[in-house]
């Protein structure tokens, strides 16, 4: 019982702002690493072919 009470006291001493800073740091580091990495996980590279409208033979591209 004393053990649980002590544990509760320790949990109450936790500073949410500091926890938030640690979580924000981890998230930012993860996102930044992903952005600059070859194999992106969260920001996938656009691997789909880009289709372009080509002008018809002998004609101008429609505006």
């Amino acid at each position: 019982m004393t053990c649980l009470r002590r544990f509760r006291t320790r949990l109450m001493q936790l500073r949410p702002a500091r926890l938030l800073v640690l979580c924000a740091l981890a998230l930012l580091a993860g996102l930044a690493t992903d952005w600059f990495s070859e194999q992106r996980i969260f920001f996938p590279r656009n691997d789909f072919p880009v289709f372009q409208t080509l002008p018809a033979a002998g004609g101008a591209l429609e505006q």
Binding site: R10, L14, R15, R18, C23, A26, L27, G30, T33, I41
Partner: peptide
Amino acid sequence: TLFVPYLEGILGLALIADFWPETVRPA
């Protein structure tokens, strides 16, 4: 996938350095 490894790394290093112990240990 991106968040957990970095959080583990930060918490691990903070635990070793005994940095913000009142927050890091419960975390």
